[in-house]
Design a protein around this nucleic acid. Sequence first.
DNA 1: GTCCTTGCAAAAGTTTTGCAAGGTG
DNA 2: CACCTTGCAAAACTTTTGCAAGGAC
Lengths: 147, 147
Amino acid sequence: MIENSAGFIEQRVSEFISRSKELGIKVTPQRVAIYKELASTDQHPSTEIIYNKIRDYYPNISLTTVYRTLETFEKLGLISVVNVLYNAARYDANLDPHHHIVCTQCKKVEDVYDESFTNLDVSEKTLGDYKVEGYSVLLSGVCIDCR
Amino acid sequence: MIENSAGFIEQRVSEFISRSKELGIKVTPQRVAIYKELASTDQHPSTEIIYNKIRDYYPNISLTTVYRTLETFEKLGLISVVNVLYNAARYDANLDPHHHIVCTQCKKVEDVYDESFTNLDVSEKTLGDYKVEGYSVLLSGVCIDCR
DNA sequence: GTCCTTGCAAAAGTTTTGCAAGGTG
DNA sequence: CACCTTGCAAAACTTTTGCAAGGAC
């Protein structure tokens, strides 16, 4: 749960710094700025958006650094990527209700048919501001070929 | 459920042609080829992959056409896009279990906390070939600002 | 001081757009 | 034959990579 109090964010940044030292990566001002920006919002920003926000107070930062840093953080489990399959649009002619599992290594997608996934109650949820059209469960894992 | 019999695919292509006429879009050889390619696989191909497969027997087709056609089909509900948020990577510093809802119009993402989503049983599923690492539910809808 | 990290520039990869030619209904 | 659709080319946008300079430990 995000709380927009400065103290809460400072605490998360402190934890990030400790964790970075444990993991053996260097704590640079760029990395702190990127982590802090991400920890300060629940808007799930893109790389470009993070870059632009940081440039307001850190004009010399490079977009390349933001890309590389987010990738590093994600690989180490310090942050997560919301959309695993962001590389290219993937299409499906099968309109029956079903779900998907993606291999985090080769990005292959397979279908998952499971009634317990298909019958989730999405009507009464805390989605007050949204007109919900649908949902799907995306599992992630490593396929047999990549193991 | 995809069945790889030629007859089954032919039937789906026929339905596609009828539906196209109902919807008032023109049935071109390119469109039929694209639909047929997508209906013949459960691999959830990208635009580029569909393009390359079609070029084996239809060398003049343009990648632009494949992009535009898939977009058209998706808007009309003839196919669906597996990864709504494919435009750019979106990151999250919040590692607590939670889910997301995306506005299909402005692509804004918000958090959803719901225990019934968080307690799905993913251990005994028909995911035999995968080492499952996790999952998340992605709801889609239209946010209040876009209505 | 060592070696990881950064910034710049260039390249690779994905998607969109303008416009004239072509084909469907 | 009207108008939607296609193909080409160019541009826009997102991401990755090579390399030399710089900074953290």
